[in-house]
Design a binder for these strands. Structure first.
Length: 646
RNA sequence: GUCCCCAUCGUCUAGUCAGGUCUAGGACACCAGCCUUUCAAGCUGGCGACACGGGUUCGAAUCCCGUUGGGGAUACCA
């Protein structure tokens, strides 16, 4: 278009006359903005409002749709779009056509930073806060801190991945710390499984329980003395106090539901006890906990890298227990002390921790330390109606499940990386290196992403197809589960049932499959309605879930016990299990099959069978869990559902 | 209940900070067609969203307020 002196080209006038001033502005805006501030927009036949965009004085260049901008750019784009097929590989694309129009603009105009920022929240963050940007010369140190209380959880992998990527991106260090301060629930087996799972994923840590470093030990149960000392310090300064209330007293208070308790969850009865008397009572061996003395008024302002300033009234924060009566610290004390001592610079953890941030901040303050930067990641969600946080009730959440079901670590990691951070206009298949390279902590989306199995399968399929030739695939299968050891375990189970070698395939298929499809009409238990069968299967799932080691004779023992408790003969009892596990009424021996499948696959199939039978609603499940726990068969149920990590 | 966080296709997301190029882009799923000895893969196309209501503005997915919805926390669990 040819630049023309103002008053407007005919083109412009025509638009004005039909009352489409906005459209005209749109067309003009790109060139106008640099030179104009505000003016009376006389030609407008619509409302004669103040118009900031049109040129003030006639004769200015504002009406000129300058050389090639921006209308033309838009036209170009429109023309181009149809040919820009969505499946062109990233490599075929230029930087410019790989990104969004907006980003393209950024790329084109070097005066703007090319990093897109997210969300109004982040806008607020910029405006309202000047978060702590502490000594930036310090090398980045981050950590993932799983608690070894169950299966290696996808959430742990997710946190680990983002911490890992951040550390690598900034040439920093990534620490693995085991938060085993829950004496009842923690186990060494679980810890080992978690390490193995993270190793399988390829997320190597620089320091950890198995990888000595300057801040060892990396297992909190081995640092008890450190926490005790810090608790003493807090006690001495009055930042903490001893509370001699019994659990029963607290429970009773809560039950009575006094208003004052609503906020803080317990009375602060011992808050003002004379410290010396308290110390005496403690010395005399009276059982007590140590609590943090939280201010009763004022506001705590916290900063989150993604959310900016967050405010919370101190009166709403409880006097957190720091040291339990068994002398173990709670998460809150341990994580603050360790993060400081281990020189963690950025705490990247799950959103579930936001509400305890005030306490953590207070601890840093009272200990006289500078807090790290906090970044709370959204929680992975279930694919159900209300998108609750990812739980194994609805989804397989164990990393081991995905491994045994035949997913590749690259695919799982890749997929996890897509949760919250995306390359929306590029190829979504990307390696860990590529992920790290493009990693931008501040660009994470805040909406809790649903863990979509279907998309994971698609990604996994691409890895399988694209990254292996025939020989490679064979090697992969061998290293997965078609190894001699596994086959030799299966052989004795199959042999008696084999009439020809040709039977092998069908006979053993269920030992390698992810899920099987048991016919509902075969999922029966003598004298039981389908719902009762579902209940039985659910209880077996719970029982199996905590069983370590997961071997045939242990499984046998545990199931026989459960059968007795429920008043069934083992023979009857196992019938729906066969069907649920193998998909058929007759198959390889149950307990051995379960052992070969492993805990995760076994559980997944039991759960799938429960769903096939119509499922159990939340209420029924709750009731059932009570009944189950009354059987006293060890912990289990959904209580051990989540595996938080800090 | 209370507090905190969040809000674009069914799902993952781009765009939001610095409002105009958004007729809202991509991917998964779904549907159809092509290719093909079947199926898958691949290719092409289709369906499909700015939660709602106010405000600011010439102009709002974008800024502000409110509502609604969802999540998290409310433990001597993490």
């Amino acid at each position: 278009m040819e630049p023309q002196a103002v008053g407007g080209s005919r083109h412009d006038e025509r638009r004005f006359l039909v009352g489409r001033c906005e459209a005209t502005y749109n067309m003009l805006w790109g060139t106008v903005n640099a030179t104009t501030t505000s003016c009376k927009h006389l030609q407008c036949l619509g409302e004669p409002k103040e118009c900031r965009l049109a040129p003030r004085e006639p004769g200015l260049g504002g009406y000129l749709p300058g050389p090639g901008r921006p209308q033309q750019a838009a036209d170009d784009r429109r023309r181009v779009r149809p040919q820009e097929t969505r499946t062109r590989r990233a490599a075929d694309r230029t930087m410019a056509d790989r990104c969004s129009p907006r980003t393209r603009r950024r790329v084109a105009s070097p005066d703007r930073p090319a990093t897109p920022k997210k969300n109004q929240a982040r806008a607020r963050a910029r405006r309202e806060t000047a978060p702590v940007s502490d000594d930036r010369e310090k090398p980045v140190r981050v950590r993932v801190a799983p608690s070894p209380t169950g299966d290696p959880h996808l959430g742990t992998a997710y946190q680990a991945l983002f911490n890992y990527a951040f550390a690598r991106r900034h040439g920093g260090q990534f620490v693995l710390r085991i938060e085993d301060t829950d004496r009842q629930r923690s186990s060494r087996e679980s810890e080992e499984e978690i390490l193995a799972a993270l190793r399988w994923l390829g997320l190597a840590w620089d320091e950890g329980p198995d990888q000595d470093g300057p801040h060892a030990p990396y297992r909190q149960s081995e640092r008890l003395e450190i926490y005790r000392e810090h608790a003493e310090r807090l006690l001495a300064s009055g930042a903490a106090y001893r509370d001699f209330s019994t659990r029963e007293e607290i429970a009773r208070e809560r039950e009575s539901g006094q208003d004052a308790l609503d906020y803080v969850g317990h009375s602060r009865r011992h808050r003002d006890l004379d410290p010396e008397e308290a110390a005496r009572r403690a010395a005399a061996g009276e059982e007590h906990v140590v609590r943090l003395r939280v201010p009763t008024d004022g506001v705590c302002t916290m900063h989150d890298v993604l959310r900016g300033a967050i405010e919370r009234e101190w009166s709403l924060v409880d006097d957190q227990v720091l040291l339990k009566s068994d002398g173990f610290p709670t998460y809150h004390l341990a994580n603050v002390v360790d993060d400081h001592l281990m020189e963690i610079t950025h705490v990247i953890r799950g959103e579930e921790w936001i509400s305890s941030l005030p306490k953590h901040l207070l601890l840093y303050e009272k200990l006289g330390w500078q807090p790290p930067l906090f970044c709370h990641l959204p929680l992975l969600r279930n694919d159900d109606a209300n998108r609750s946080k990812l739980s194994k009730r609805r989804n397989p959440t164990s990393i081991d499940y995905y491994r045994r079901a035949g997913y590749l670590p690259e695919a799982l990691l890749n997929f996890l990386g897509l949760m919250g951070l995306s390359r929306a206009d590029g190829d979504e298949k990307l390696s860990l290196e590529e992920f790290v390279e493009g990693f931008d902590l501040e660009a994470i989306s805040l909406g809790g992403p649903v863990f979509d199995q279907k998309k994971l399968r698609w990604l996994n399929a691409r890895y399988l197809r694209e990254d292996f030739d025939a020989a490679g695939l064979v090697r992969l299968l061998r290293s997965w589960r078609l190894d001699d050891t596994t086959l030799e375990r299966i052989a004795p189970l199959a042999q008696p049932r084999l009439e020809t070698l040709g039977d092998w395939g069908e006979l053993t298929a269920h030992l390698f499959a992810d899920l099987v499809e048991p016919p509902v009409e075969e999922l029966t238990l003598e004298g039981c309605e389908p719902e009762q069968v579902a209940e039985v299967l659910q209880m077996v799932a719970w029982r199996v879930d905590t069983l370590r080691p997961f071997v045939a004779d242990r499984i046998h023992g545990v199931l026989r016990e459960l059968a007795e408790q429920l008043g069934f003969k083992l023979r009857q009892f196992t019938r729906p299990l066969y069907v649920a596990i193998s998909g058929k009424p007759a198959s390889t021996p149950l307990f051995d099959t379960m052992e070969i499948l492993g805990r995760d696959l076994t559980r997944a199939r039991l759960r799938a069978a429960v769903e096939r039978l119509g499922g159990l609603g939340a209420k029924k499940l709750k009731k059932l869990e009570k009944r189950y726990q009354a059987l006293g068969g060890g912990s289990g149920g959904e209580g051990s559902d989540d595996d938080g990590d800090g």
